[in-house]
Structures are given as structure tokens and as C-alpha cells.
Amino acid sequence: MSKEWPLWEIFIRGQHGLSHRHVGSLHAPDAETAVKNARDVYTRRSEGVSIWVVEARHITATAPGDKGPIFEPSESKVYRHPTFYDIPDDVGHM
């Protein structure tokens, strides 16, 4: 078996000015081809106006086991949400 093409992660920005979003991955020999293939695989129905490709091995991720220490601290900080504050109806929309 010959050598396999590297894996690329594909990010696409949709029509409405939102951020690029991860949509999937594909194999390609180089970045330019990855962009071309991403166009064919992930934007056949006008799903995007911009494509980013990143070789999968360049992505650093949090480990599933670290979920607690990394994400739990924010759970107790309810005062970061607007619903934490009771504003009387008389004040009007805020």
C-alpha cells in the first residue's frame, strides 16, 4: 500500500457572517487540493462563503479526562448570566 494522504480538518463560514465552523475532514495531498476538495465535499448547496483547512496533526485539543478541572469552574458562576439579576418590571426593558 502506498503512503496515505494527510488528513485535513475543514472549517466553513456560512452566508450570515458567523464564524467559521468545523464541518468535517478529508484527505488531500496538500493545502490547495484540500481547499478544492472541501469545496466539492462540503459546499455543494451554497453552505459557505469561505473555507479554512488545517492539517489535523496541527490541532491541539483538551483531553476528555480534563473536562472537570477545565470546565467545571465556570458552572458555579451564575452571576455571569443576565438572568441572575432581578430587575423590577417597572424599570422597563433592560
Binding site: S2, K3, W5, P29, D30, T33
Partner: peptide, 14 residues
């Protein structure tokens, strides 16, 4: 096969 290998070789050369 030759296309897959050729494109990879080209990318490595570049």
C-alpha cells in the same frame, strides 16, 4: 494509484 502517489510526491517536493 499513480495519481495518489504523484500528487503526494509533488506536494513533498513543493
Amino acid at each position: 494509484a499513480w495519481v495518489r502517489d504523484g500528487l503526494l510526491a509533488h506536494s513533498e517536493k513543493k
